[in-house]
Design a protein around this nucleic acid. Sequence first.
DNA 1: GCAAAAGTGTTGCTCATACACCCATGG
DNA 2: CCATGGGTGTATGAGCAACACTTTTGC
Lengths: 214, 214
Amino acid sequence: MSYEYAYPHPAVTVDVVVFTIENDELKVLLIQRDQEPFKGQWAMPGGFVGIDERLSDAAKRELKEETGVSVNFLEQFYTFGRPDRDPRERIITVAYYALLPSDQLSLAAGDDARDAQLFSTDALPALAGDHANIFRVAKQRVTERLNDDYFAFRMLPETFTMYELRRVYELFLGEVLDKRNFRKKIIALDQIEETGEKRESVRHRPARLYRVQR
Amino acid sequence: MSYEYAYPHPAVTVDVVVFTIENDELKVLLIQRDQEPFKGQWAMPGGFVGIDERLSDAAKRELKEETGVSVNFLEQFYTFGRPDRDPRERIITVAYYALLPSDQLSLAAGDDARDAQLFSTDALPALAGDHANIFRVAKQRVTERLNDDYFAFRMLPETFTMYELRRVYELFLGEVLDKRNFRKKIIALDQIEETGEKRESVRHRPARLYRVQR
DNA sequence: GCAAAAGTGTTGCTCATACACCCATGG
DNA sequence: CCATGGGTGTATGAGCAACACTTTTGC
């Protein structure tokens, strides 16, 4: 079976930059490509958009197929289309970022991927094609939106401490934030509430747990 | 001549939402389509991306071909890809906005367009397909960026008055701004300078003219 | 002289920042 | 008892919002 067109068509793919926090580090989910081009190199999960498939559905599907991970929160952030970005054919990639709590992440390498794992954003391997650039733009966009939209808790488990929430900001911004001022700002947003529970079994004073309201 | 692929490929187009200010109104540049689909309806200028063409180059080229207008300032803002947005085939559209001074705008309808003209954003005609949505998203993004990036003067001639600059903000924001506070804010940005000239031949006190620095 | 927009300062308030000490727990 | 992060309040400065009158020109 083949498909014919009166003029040349580019291929369209979606790529997903999945951010999470694990062990007090900002991490990104990468797959090791099992197919050409860039076979053996690490890359963002992604792949071709079905001819009748929504772009966001394609992003979710490819992520699921290649890594076993399901996400709810996914936003389109840029479309990469330089003519020379893929050696096979012209490929235009609509890129998404996703934020995920690390406890919802059970990895399973799948189609087109011989491996899938989290990497600290401080120590990324060499990435296939222009994926280092895609990552950079994604991180920048998420960082910008952190201050406007306060969606940092999408990278945390259902309950979390102030320290953990503050660390998300610090890891993206690359600077330390004042503990007292941070707490005041977050409380003023009126987006989270105390659960009444505390984080036990830590070798210091137990911290209050919070959850997102509603 | 025809082009064959092992699996179906969508078509990729670019559309450009051109904003300008004319006669104290916010306007957008539309073409009247001369081809199916949506023949006879008004739409944003745009068209197919060449197989070896950069996306931004395609946007500039299509705009030039269809309206005679050349722009420098062009930014990608979103990619629209719902499977049903075009009746012919799957079309994915990478959308750009452009800001242009109205004095650099001499219209000439061209390929695929029987007419090209400016419309006040308060009185848009019915638009083809999902172009009303594309317009809405573009206006929202430009409005957001007005406050961050201060590129409002890209819609004004080389010299302009404080009143004219303030009107750009007011037209996007849909609210009136305080004259004194606005002037203070703009001066503090240190982006514009006085030309020394004044806007003469108006039936009120002449206003100082400013230009962008450098 | 009248209509129309140009131009000009001060005050109060809100918000962001800077900053230091004691507390509760595990080991 | 020590190491570790948890938790708390105040003072200062910057920036934003509110607000009214005089000036200059064309008609």
